[in-house]
Design a protein around this nucleic acid. Structure first.
Lengths: 152, 152
DNA sequence: TTTTTTGCAAAGACTTTGCATTGGA
DNA sequence: TCCAATGCAAAGTCTTTGCAAAAAA
């Protein structure tokens, strides 16, 4: 995503905040930008480490990721007891499958049509066999990513 | 599981603890028994609530579920940022699929051969398409269980 | 008796909240 | 200007740790 596109997205977020009566503060802009600088899942600590040089308070990060999650700008995923956040615009999928590398700790989104189809069958089986009514699912794979596979 | 069988299992746990040089204290016995009284997933708080009448300390529960997890008597699963434990003897399956009811909060083990087969296909796809090497997977379904489906 | 385990209380880690001050529209 | 948002510090949670006393073997 180039600088112009990021600018467009950030402007959109500004509008969304303003529609909710929320202000587009310097700190909120900085937090949201982090998700464009590196398109990955970030937790509060990671965001804070990147922004503390701007004198941002840790409580501000906690407060705002929670707000952004509530108004649907970010989506929270919990992995190993830690909350990570990702841009909601990247998570408009029928379900969420994540992969966490046990070497580099990166969390990767899995987004393959065929895998989603396999999953749908799994879901239907679950409902039929157990009498459940399923609303959401969370699939987490753990292992080595392509990058780390060679040098473990 | 009747009383005689529970007695046999508990005796086995006593032996396992003794082999590791650990003592079979009254508190450890009580904690392990809870998993037989109700064959479900328990978190530290739930165990403590059941046992505080025996004057057991919360720290003792924390310490021991951790020990039992390390020596393989219990298996830890993390759901919504809370650690639950279950007897390892009930978790000797090729993979772990859980279902959490959003009404009664019960966590149910899913253990259907056909679902496991679907999963294995999913796993292979993941490795082939993304170049991952998968070691573990965690699948959590959320929805209404059969019991709660009617009265939501 | 000897060593481990316990309960308690204190200390840590992480997150939220209260409040005076600052800042955005 | 006016109200929302911020940084800070204090207060909550939840979990771990230190230690003297108690309990296993």
């Amino acid at each position: 995503m180039d600088k112009r596109e990021i600018f467009t997205e950030i402007s959109l977020f500004k509008r969304i905040l303003e529609e909710k009566g929320l202000k587009f503060s310097k700190q909120r802009k900085l937090i949201l930008e982090q998700f464009f600088i590196e398109e990955k899942h970030l937790n509060v600590e990671e965001i804070y480490q990147r922004l503390k040089k701007y004198n941002i308070g840790l409580a501000t990060v906690y407060r705002n990721v929670k707000i952004f999650n509530n108004i649907g700008l970010l989506k929270e995923i919990v992995v190993d007891e830690v909350s990570y956040y990702e841009l909601k615009i990247y998570s408009k999928k029928p379900l969420h499958i994540h992969f966490k590398c046990i070497s580099c700790n990166d969390i990767i989104d899995v987004d393959e049509r065929k895998i989603v189809l396999e999953y749908l069958k799994l879901n239907k089986d679950m409902e039929d066999r157990n009498g459940f009514e399923i609303y959401d699912v969370n699939i987490m794979f753990y292992g080595y990513c392509q990058k780390c596979k060679g040098c473990k």
